[in-house]
Amino acid sequence: MTTVMSGFIRFVENVGRKFVGGIAELGYVLVLFAESLYWGFVGHSRQQPVRVQSVLKEIREIGFNAVLIVSVLCMAVGAMLAIQGVATLKAFGQELRTIDLVAQATTREFASLIVGILVAGRSGSAITARIGTMHESQEIDALRVIGINPVRHLGSPVLLAMIVCVPLLTIVGYFMCIFGSGLFVSSALDIPLATYMERTLEVLTLNDVSQGLIKSSVFAIIIALVGVSNGFQVGSGAEGVGRSTTRSVVLSISFIVVADMIFTYFLNIASFS
């Protein structure tokens, strides 16, 4: 009986500790967010600017270097959606509706989600690993004794670059998804690619396009904050860096998917009623 009781107490204790830890981490991340923005906006007037050069370097790494892989993945997803669309809609004799389906599904949902997950895996993990190793080798301490605020030097450039890059990559994703789908549909249903594109432009509304862009901005903030905060809070040793990197990717992707669901609900709330 007592062992059951003590086991239960230990369980409750663990849940409580995890919960408090989670709240503490949330607080840490919010402070990090505020601080990153603070240095971005106010740093200049305090003679401690966020260096444009480091933001550009991050943009090249996070954005420019990801264009090719985003293009390939989005084309594949576009084509996949088109194949499924044609196959299922054929039963209703509506296979031409595949064009509408793909146009809306990719702009509202798929492009931003694919880009978010890809950037989280590609850059989120790299950011955690980089900051984590810097922490391990006392480089962060060295920054601080020189007077360089580590959030300003490492956090702000990542956040700013993410907010610029992820939506832009999402726009690349829109084009490539629709292009990939267009290639399949135009050959399978024997219509010219130009007609396909015209029809796409007809169905797309500003609402469709903006939904993906709003969500991708949220994903950008999630990836940056999760990546940077896990880097700063890295445990000791090479093992600590590895664990934080994994944690960073898993958390980013989980938060992205959950945030996607929540935002999709609220962005479409008008259409339910």
């Binding site: 190793t133 810097m134 006392q138 480089e139 060295a142």
Partner: peptide, 9 residues
């Protein structure tokens, strides 16, 4: 001057 040097790699 840190123990490991702590130069930015």
């Amino acid at each position: 001057s840190f123990q490991s040097g702590a130069l930015m790699r």
